[in-house]
Simulated assay, not measured.
Amino acid sequence: MATMAAEFVGGRGGGVGGGGGGGTLSDIYQNCKRLLLKSRDGLERLERLEYSSSSSLDSSPELFDSVKRDISQILSLCTEMDHMWRSIPADPAKSQRGLWKRKVEQVAEEAESLKESLDRYSLRYQRRKQEAQERAELLGRANGESSHILRIFDEEAEARQSVQSSSRMLEEAYATGVAILSKYSEQRDHLKRAQRKALDVLNRLGLSNSVLRLIERRNRVDRWIKYAGMVITIIIVIMVWRWTS
């Protein structure tokens, strides 16, 4: 019976090869142990990258995929070993079945523990990735609002500049109107003085009343011309103010 168990454990085919079943139970077990060490080391490297980089999966996707494949292969090999140790003939003297049962269960537990750690790592990464996307969206919206505010400031600056320009034009038009009215006032004073001199001369010359009435009529015409010029000037100032406002 012991000879049959030894032949089953140590004599099923050649080596394991690159990473699957098909070898002896001992070979498959040793391959699982190597894969466990490799997976544990890869998971530790991923966790170190997690605290040194904002996106460890983006920086080493091959490492994550490699650890995931190794853990899946270990679980698959554990299933194969489970079938193999159950096929070992009972050997009360050496307890081969119980020994391999404990070894396979230990490997399977370690593989499940690594798988859970890798799943938690993946969830943390997905959460960080989502938070980074939300921050990018918020930043994009903030930049858009800033651009909108800058456009508003530019429009307000242009409006203030336009108002200032219009105010200067209105002031210039007002100053021009005042200067014109001042000229009309000076001309009126000159006309009055000229009229008085002319009347004095005419009185001295003894001109008729008809000539005096003609002079008075001309004086009234000049007065209306003066008033009309003042009104026209005011109308021009008002029109300029409305056009610039």
Results as ranks from 00 to 15, higher is better:
1 M>K: 09
7 E>W: 02
8 F>E: 01
19 G>T: 04
21 G>N: 01
21 G>S: 00
24 T>R: 08
30 Q>M: 04
30 Q>R: 03
34 R>N: 14
35 L>P: 00
37 L>G: 08
37 L>H: 05
38 K>F: 01
38 K>G: 05
38 K>I: 01
39 S>Y: 05
40 R>C: 01
42 G>E: 01
42 G>N: 05
52 S>G: 15
52 S>A: 14
52 S>E: 15
55 S>W: 01
57 L>Q: 11
58 D>S: 14
58 D>G: 15
59 S>F: 09
60 S>Y: 03
61 P>S: 12
62 E>L: 11
64 F>V: 13
66 S>F: 01
66 S>K: 15
68 K>V: 09
71 I>W: 09
76 S>Y: 13
77 L>E: 09
78 C>Y: 05
84 M>A: 09
87 S>W: 04
93 A>D: 10
96 Q>I: 06
97 R>V: 07
97 R>G: 04
101 K>Q: 07
101 K>V: 01
104 V>S: 03
105 E>H: 06
106 Q>G: 04
107 V>I: 05
108 A>F: 03
108 A>K: 04
112 E>Q: 02
112 E>M: 02
113 S>K: 08
117 S>W: 00
118 L>K: 06
121 Y>W: 03
123 L>H: 08
131 E>G: 00
136 A>P: 12
136 A>V: 08
139 L>I: 05
142 A>R: 13
148 H>Y: 06
149 I>K: 07
156 E>L: 06
158 E>C: 13
159 A>K: 14
161 Q>S: 10
162 S>M: 08
171 E>V: 11
178 V>A: 06
178 V>Q: 06
179 A>T: 11
179 A>M: 05
182 S>D: 04
183 K>Q: 14
185 S>T: 15
186 E>S: 11
186 E>G: 05
189 D>C: 15
194 A>W: 15
198 A>F: 13
198 A>L: 11
204 R>P: 00
206 G>V: 10
206 G>M: 11
213 R>S: 14
217 R>Q: 11
217 R>C: 11
218 R>T: 15
222 D>R: 03
226 K>Q: 13
226 K>I: 12
227 Y>T: 10
229 G>R: 14
231 V>H: 07
232 I>C: 04
233 T>I: 14
236 I>C: 10
238 I>T: 03
242 R>H: 03
243 W>H: 11
245 S>G: 03
